[in-house]
Design a protein around this nucleic acid. Structure first.
Lengths: 339, 339
DNA sequence: CTGTTAGCGCTTTCAG
DNA sequence: CTGAAAGCGCTAACAG
């Protein structure tokens, strides 16, 4: 260790400004009962030294960390940074720090341990599988919990979701009404409730439109090894390929398009492609992916509000709020308007 | 407040396992001098209750938070999540928590305050402007500091960068050698050292290849209001447009391509486009952007190691490490191999 | 209005 | 090898 400047504590500030330590604490926490002159005097010293109360002592004393946790996984799906960005903005604006856990790599252990050690006052779970252990731990620790874009059937917590089922239902309707004869559905692992709901909605939408879902046209792949790109190539290479491919989310759709392009397939001339999520890049001219859009920013803000209200004891009943999705028609379906 | 289960403390564990509180602490911190039987007994109780030591008390006592901070901005640039992901993985694997600050929104105040309150043991700054205040605060607080993909000229701290200058130099050479006659360069705000270095390298590369940089072909735009998309449209719409556009980073290149596409320009037939960074999506078939690639994962791992070593007092001299960039030739330059 | 005092839960000497 | 005891820096009664 080198010559540590030995950080100042509130005791030092008290000494330097000729008051008691308690008064320093009062000044900094903005309590009322302090004479203006005293307050001024203390603040002067505080500013001069750039003093900030030690966050840990504060947290320990008040049993509030002023931090919230966000559990993410599959960060490679661009919707995750988008959610993260919106959540961070929301929490930061409300004076909370954000601690991010990635449950992909080292699993849930770190998160569980953090939950139990009281590091955060609340937790947001974002769309992902493999977080149920942690969620359970949080629940047991009586920690406020919100899930966004993800359902925990087993767990009683606030949830912010979108109309996954209805959105997919309407999407199927759109494709059929537009005259698509042979519609495939490509999905990721169905242990994610979001993806499962969408597939279910899509199936029912097809039926409602008078089409019996063909099992051979429903695909499921893991999010790895470029599986979707390969699938895109395979689908186009097969005899009598479909004339439309709906996907569980935008990232899947993009990877399918990568495969289609690699195989020489033109979108939308040969095959239509649609996604689900409405990530920002779906709107880029060079991608222009037709998709079912979720109001991500709104959902994140709502999740943040839910969590903070619950932390502050302003809510007790759990609630599930569902945002309406909206079909965005773009180039990958030839800009064909909904009939 | 509802019926709080009143979290267990080490005192409770001690009572439950019939030892002293100090012994519990010793067992959990893995100190040697504890009889195996005692250790076993304590661990049993610990496990049974899912007990974890209170992180704040621990932090306060040891003056170490076991957390590191990462300051980011412009999260909408996909390289940021990529860096974040790699950093998070690295730190988590080494038993550190990661706290993320977004300095876009609420500026640096939150970060500065966090620095001074001792919330993190060290800090990584990622490519961004507007963080110098915070960096200075960190430096004054004697907090270990590493910058990645970003230079702080004024500050003496570890830096992990790539060969921005050389990479851009070689890129200019490539374009000229491939017969491009009129090469534009589109950049973001040049207060970012990374972007400034690239532009400088590009200029010198042109000169070395026998071309005098034409001021009218160097553009700079802010990262907002779709400025780059608009610029792409303008560039193609002008009389006698360039036959190649090099960009300060991949995101700029993509937005330029959006504008070009919107204006009816074909890439690479009409104009070549190249980026810089090597973000993952640049490699997607549907984008296939020629770019100068940085080894992001390596850089992030290195930054993490630097920071942790410094926190643990294993390093004292500051160091700048520079990774080699690599030209990735793809479709936006017609897959033309470097001569 | 301000000072004194008692811990929050933990690590770490210091004894035994 | 283990226990007792002293704080880390802060907040929150409780006095004055």
């Amino acid at each position: 260790m080198n010559t540590k400047p030995k950080k100042l504590s509130s005791v030092d500030i008290a000494r330097l400004s000729g008051v008691s330590q308690a008064t320093v604490s009062r000044v900094l926490s903005g309590s009322d009962g302090v004479k203006a002159a005293t307050k001024e005097k203390v603040m002067q010293v505080v500013k001069a030294h750039g003093y900030r109360p030690n966050a840990f002592a504060q947290a320990m004393r008040t049993n509030q960390s002023a931090a919230v946790g966000v559990a993410v996984s599959r960060v490679t799906n661009p919707i995750v940074p988008e959610i993260l960005e919106a959540l961070t903005r929301s929490f930061t604006a409300k004076g909370r720090r954000v601690v991010v856990w990635n449950t992909d790599e080292n699993g849930q252990d770190g998160l569980i341990s953090a939950i139990r050690s009281g590091l955060v006052d609340g937790l947001v779970f974002t769309a992902a599988n493999q977080q149920s252990e942690a969620a359970k731990a949080a629940h047991e620790a009586d920690m406020p919990l919100v899930s966004i874009n993800r359902s925990f059937d087993e767990l009683d917590c606030d949830q912010v979701v979108s109309t996954n089922h209805q959105g997919a239902f309407d999407l199927a309707d759109y494709l059929v009404k537009c005259g698509r004869k042979k519609v495939a559905f490509v999905n990721g692992p169905k242990d994610r409730t979001t993806l499962a709901d969408r597939e279910q909605g899509f199936r029912e939408g097809l039926r409602a439109a008078g089409i019996t879902p063909d099992p051979d046209l429903f695909f499921s792949r893991p999010f790895k090894d470029n599986a979707f790109r390969q699938l895109g190539m395979d689908i186009f290479g097969a005899d009598n390929p479909p004339d439309a491919i709906a996907c569980g989310n935008d990232l899947i759709a993009i990877q399918i398009m990568n495969g289609l392009k690699a195989a020489g397939c033109r979108v939308p001339e040969d095959i239509w492609v649609v996604g689900f999520d409405g990530i920002e890049m779906a709107g880029w001219d060079i991608i222009s992916l037709t998709t079912v859009q979720q109001p991500i920013e709104l959902m994140a803000n709502n999740a943040a509000t839910f969590l903070l209200d619950r932390i502050e004891g302003k809510r007790t009943e759990t609630e599930t709020i569902q945002y309406r999705t909206e079909l965005k028609v773009r180039e990958t379906t030839g800009f064909t308007p909904a009939p």
